[in-house]
Amino acid sequence: MAKLHIVNKSPFERNSLKSCLGKSKEGSTILLIEDAVVGALKGTVVADDLSSAIANKNVCVLGSDLNTRGFTEAEILDGIKIVDYAGFVDLVAEHSNVQSWL
């Protein structure tokens, strides 16, 4: 059963997204929350890395944290799914373990 990886740091300040991308397996899910949601935006220096990840992993972003920071679905990379807290709970239940990349 696949794992859920949670990242909560801006990739422009810390390297936890990069660390997570390098140590998560195909078929796993990566959820961006808190300050990490800005990593989902189009046109950033990490967009290529995330686009590669989308090819073989599920990448999600917590919509309320995105909205809180002034962004919406229109501004994030294609292929990234927006979830609410209920969706966050479902992701945790559907995966066999959760790793937070602090």
């Binding site: 794992k3 390098g22 140590k23 998560s24 397996k25 796993s28 066999s96 373990n97 959760v98 790793q99 937070s100 990349w101 602090l102």
Partner: peptide, 18 residues
């Protein structure tokens, strides 16, 4: 290696991070 660590992470039931 990073890939081997990814495999190990994948085997865990509980991961406590800090």
């Amino acid at each position: 290696t990073r890939a081997e660590l990814a495999d190990l992470i994948d085997e865990q039931d509980v991961t406590i991070s800090s």
